[in-house]
Amino acid sequence: MFTVEAKEQLDNIVKKYPTKRAALLPALWLAQEQYDGWLPPEALREVAGYLEMPPAEVEGVATFYTMYNKEKIGKFHIEVCHNIACMVRGADALIDQIGEKLGIGKGETTPDGKFTLSGAECLGACANAPCMMIGAKYFEDLTPEKVDAIVEEYKKK
């Protein structure tokens, strides 16, 4: 369920567009924040109701974009870029390293629900490859040591 503040936020988003349905993408983004980082069908229904759209259409849009999570994800979503620039700078090895450390593979979530590990398409920080994101936070110029330290730090959170 959207909080009162989130509803207000949504109202403000809708105001920026000529029609309600035009606000679908930011509305879904907001919903994802409200629903612990992913979009359960209930969230889609809520958005659909708010924007007066058929829920099937909202689900169609949500499934079109990879950055809307359709499955429950961990508290911290580690997304390591695996596109060309990061790949030649050792991204694959970093993904393996993180996976080993957390005991999960790409696309999986730790049993305690704390971490989800994904390979991401270009994060737009190629100049400082390899890079990754945890939630909304960027980490660049990664080395095995740096990654180790970052993961250790997040484990404590």
Partner: peptide, 16 residues
């Protein structure tokens, strides 16, 4: 609606 995209695109009603 059409769900997903490209090679995975399928016709589907709302899942609930």
């Amino acid at each position: 609606a059409i769900e997903s995209r490209g090679n995975s695109a399928v016709i589907a009603p709302f899942s609930l």
